[in-house]
Nucleic acid binder design. Sequence first.
DNA 1: GCACCTACGATTGTCAACAATCCGCGTATC
DNA 2: GATACGCGGATTGTTGACAATCGTAGGTGC
Lengths: 221, 221
Amino acid sequence: MSELEPVSRRSTAEIVADRIRAAIMRGTFAPGTQLGEVDLANRLGVSRGPLREAMQRLVAEGLLRSERHRGLFVRELGPDDVRDVYLARTAVERAAALQVLAGDRDAAVVALEIPLGAMAAAADAGDAVGLADADHDFHAALVAASGSPRLRRMTEGLLVETRMCLAAFQQTAPPARELLVEHERLRDALRDGRTELLLDRLAAHMDDAVTRILAAMPGAA
Amino acid sequence: MSELEPVSRRSTAEIVADRIRAAIMRGTFAPGTQLGEVDLANRLGVSRGPLREAMQRLVAEGLLRSERHRGLFVRELGPDDVRDVYLARTAVERAAALQVLAGDRDAAVVALEIPLGAMAAAADAGDAVGLADADHDFHAALVAASGSPRLRRMTEGLLVETRMCLAAFQQTAPPARELLVEHERLRDALRDGRTELLLDRLAAHMDDAVTRILAAMPGAA
DNA sequence: GCACCTACGATTGTCAACAATCCGCGTATC
DNA sequence: GATACGCGGATTGTTGACAATCGTAGGTGC
């Protein structure tokens, strides 16, 4: 029943935006690189019209930086941006966690098991990309469980920026095991309804990520 | 020195988006109304290309809802949306307030005096629109003082949605005096560095707004 | 009289061409 | 030899027209 509604309900601009967003997330387009319109349009098989619409959307999301008559560039994130992304993530995910605690905790815990399993598998396999994917999915699922469309949308954007930060130096293997434990402890605190513990662990989790990223960053201030 | 740099650095799509956003905010376009592209383009004196780019941006911000081959419609906000907007606002402004408390409190207090003055004047004059403007500016200034670009951007979007909620029934005069006092108390708590008090008052302020809006809403569930 | 089908009008989605602007390089001049 | 000027190439910004799609009104058959 869930497969019978969409034929091509999504607009071309939206599809193009998703594609480019994924490419930026994966690090295919390095920060600072210029995105030529004709080149991209030809490569995606669309005209410049829909492509420009998609670009405007990405500019609104903060992924691209537009200079008039100069071109579109992939936004480059400095140390301040890393701190700011995680500041915003902390704010949003804290609110989401509180909502989950006040709502259906069990369903949320169930939803978190899937990314946790993927994270464990990726940790065992030493798959850095899979690990980042699972991390992404974990936090997306947490916020989605809050039932708030706006928190969800904000998190989606912030997670993309997080991936941009990570993609820059994802050659350095993250401490997979430690990361998995951190997330499992978040789930445990949520499952047990330990509000203060969950919020503390969430804040600590974010702080850890910031220090990890800044430590591996080229221009660490 | 600050007036000599920008000639037309902003793209046309951005200008158009700002214009339409303001129109939606003011209630010029009632929720649910369809926005014809050719009509809008002619009225704004631009072609459909830039206008469509601006529309995509507004869709990304959640102000418009796009249906393929049907048209663009102004998003209509129900009771759930009101609650969700204020849930997100509480999360974001709470984080901003904490940042301000940890940073330059005095500068923030100074910045808040301007919208507070405007609010007092609007309250005396019985100017509902001016009151809403001042309210908007107060919260924008608070978040801007946090120094976080992302919190600031999120707030900007959420405040527009807030105005959309208010515009629907702004014929009902809000309790201006009470509103002014609430904001002054927020400033007081911030000025005195009373963290817990400020957060409590902020949360209460948001709750009050939700109940006020839902009470005056047509389809209050 | 009711239901179905068809043609029309209007709107959106897409495209290719035109105009404006900016960067880099070569040349002339001091 | 260094600097200022101007030109060429490339890219973006904008425009208008064409094609696809949807809602609706009218007509026809049962």
